[in-house]
Design a protein around this nucleic acid. Structure first.
Lengths: 339, 339
DNA sequence: ACAAATAACGAAATCGGTTTCACGGCTAAT
DNA sequence: ATTAGCCGTGAAACCGATTTCGTTATTTGT
């Protein structure tokens, strides 16, 4: 199997050294910002480098330093995960920050189920300097990688409370609080919630926010108003129908994502009730759905680009041996028509 | 700035060579499948390599061969592009194929507007073996990279008809044909269409399919039924209201994507007409929206994972100096409730 | 004014593979 | 029985940047 390679001419340290009349060592010092070089030489080296249009050879540097400048971005390869527009935006956030820091993101879409397949490639392979994990349920893989000393950052709070792995996350508790409080402020007296998967921290946290809003407002929490759904339209619709049957006086619903909000609305309308007049509905995500749906869905917006950027920043901190701060990004409520 | 690196111990050719009692050169030959080595030695080298848990060092190989094993996947960094779930799935398709071929995708989300910024990084940098472009409008950048000899693959047919750059695409013409023909077969006598941006090949092609369906059916094409929208909910809704005002007898609409189908439905319902009883609507994309929307949207499904995979295969062909076949993937109609 | 410390810089080794080249041992051709 | 040719193999050069180590030149300290 013969492979072609691009034909672009590249210049090297050797050429710069010759052109500037110094040694390769000095070129390296100048180009890496080592200040123990005479100013005159610094100038001539930089001039020579620019004249020759020098571009560093990543492979050579990687071989020499042991660092590749690459960070793996790992997404669990399951059909549902990939079609979520969320990840694309996260990737953009990561990519922007990395590009500005001379790092690159190696995208790995891989089934995390099998510990061997995925891990072998980057950890034992040592092909990357670190790894950012998206869409996490399989802790084993991540813990193994982390234990092996590879810098790891998670997007989304890990379920395991005493995990030491740094992460970035949206303030889902704050978001749930915001949504529920908004419904209270709007005059709702009986607010139910449709939860997501409670094994995912996002699901659990949004519910915590809902609970906290009751606490803050001094309202009693009725566990019967907490309907466990699983992020999907169907589950939300079914649970809402059930809620309405048992509690006809519900006048507000906080759904833990926009799709479920739409499911809830479908159920409400099916029962001949009006949104928001009879029952107000708040979603979560500020997705395209929430914007295009009629009526427009009032929802909690999270800064997804910022989430990716924060993950990248955290990774950079790790690579520089700084202890990163755990970043939790705040949310914003987008008021549309359903509440 | 001090950087840490993973601590994992790695074995090298030198160690394998010593363990197997041969030279590094022979190790290289065996591990690269050069058959001019005595079978006995092949066996002992392989055994030694396995015993030592050998993993190749990508940087060293890249330095030596000039090939990095990395392919850039470039997405134009504009807010709308990123939130389209389409790209995430394409990326998955690419990633799967690459992973199986010992290649990696370097994700670059970057504004293609400025020719300098993005290009400098991979072409002049020579950091990648090739580039796959998504979401293309800026041909200049791509042409420059291509002209410089870097293998390039496009996802989506380039607007420039006589471009020589290999691409993969969904059969948008076929899809438009399929959708329109389905409406005809269903008994619609007056079918309008909402186009996307006609400067994008997907928009133009889906319209061509609509036209071709008329031709095939021997029906006269009424240009007045072609409403130029721009992929968005709002534009579709406005254009549909206009269509309905001028042509109250329209009984079918082919929207070039699902969001516009939803916009059309909103307009139709606002005018007190029913879907699909009065007017049938077909969308395009089989997006999550089309599945969760009520009524469920009949739509044209494209094989997005397959599109990514095809792009990856095409890139691999280029890297091996084979002339790739232009791949155009067929579509499938998903029948739901709106038609 | 002289030993000791410091600054500036180059030669050479190094990272881990790949590849060229030369050499000894055989086989085939003359 | 020579000569030419092919095999299998290892020594060494090479890819391009980094880094150690040592040398010379210049300060600093007393």
């Amino acid at each position: 199997m013969t492979l072609t390679s691009p034909s672009t001419a590249r210049s090297t340290y050797a050429e710069i050294a010759e052109s500037a009349g110094v040694s390769k060592a000095t070129v390296s010092r100048v180009l890496n910002g080592d200040d123990r070089v005479h100013p005159d030489r610094i100038a001539s080296v930089i001039e020579a480098a620019e004249k020759l249009g020098y571009r560093p050879n990543r492979a050579a540097r990687a071989l020499s330093t042991g660092r590749t400048g690459l960070v793996a971005v790992v997404i669990d390869d399951e059909p549902t995960a990939l079609s979520d527009p969320f990840w694309g935006v996260v990737l953009a956030g990561i990519s922007r920050v990395f590009l500005a820091n001379d790092l690159h993101s190696l995208l790995m879409v891989t089934p995390l189920g099998s510990p061997e397949g995925a891990i072998a490639h980057y950890l034992e392979g040592g092909e990357v300097d670190g790894a950012i994990f998206l869409q996490v349920h399989k802790d084993e893989v991540i813990n193994k990688v982390h234990a092996d000393g590879l810098p790891v950052v998670l997007i989304g709070r890990p379920i395991d409370e005493n995990s030491e792995i740094p992460f970035v996350d949206t303030d889902n508790i704050g978001g749930g609080l915001q949504a529920t409080k908004y419904l209270f402020d709007r005059g709702c007296s009986k607010v139910a919630t449709l939860t997501g998967d409670l094994d995912a921290s996002a699901g659990a946290d949004r519910l915590s926010g809902y609970k906290k809003a009751h606490e803050d407002a001094g309202r009693e929490l009725d566990l019967d108003l907490i309907a466990r759904a699983n992020w999907t339209f169907e589950s939300a619709k079914i649970m809402t129908l059930r809620l309405l049957a048992k509690h006809p006086d519900i006048d507000g619903i906080f759904a833990a994502n926009d799709i479920m909000a739409i499911g809830a609305i479908a159920a409400i309308q099916e029962r001949g009730r009006r949104v928001p007049d009879d029952i107000a509905v708040v979603g979560f995500d500020d997705s395209l759905l929430s914007q295009t749906h009629r009526p427009g869905i009032t929802t909690v917006r999270q800064d997804i680009i910022g989430l990716g950027a924060a993950a990248a920043e955290t990774m950079i901190a790790l690579l520089q041996s700084r202890t990163p701060e755990i970043e939790v990004l705040s949310t914003e409520i987008m008021i549309r028509e359903t509440a």
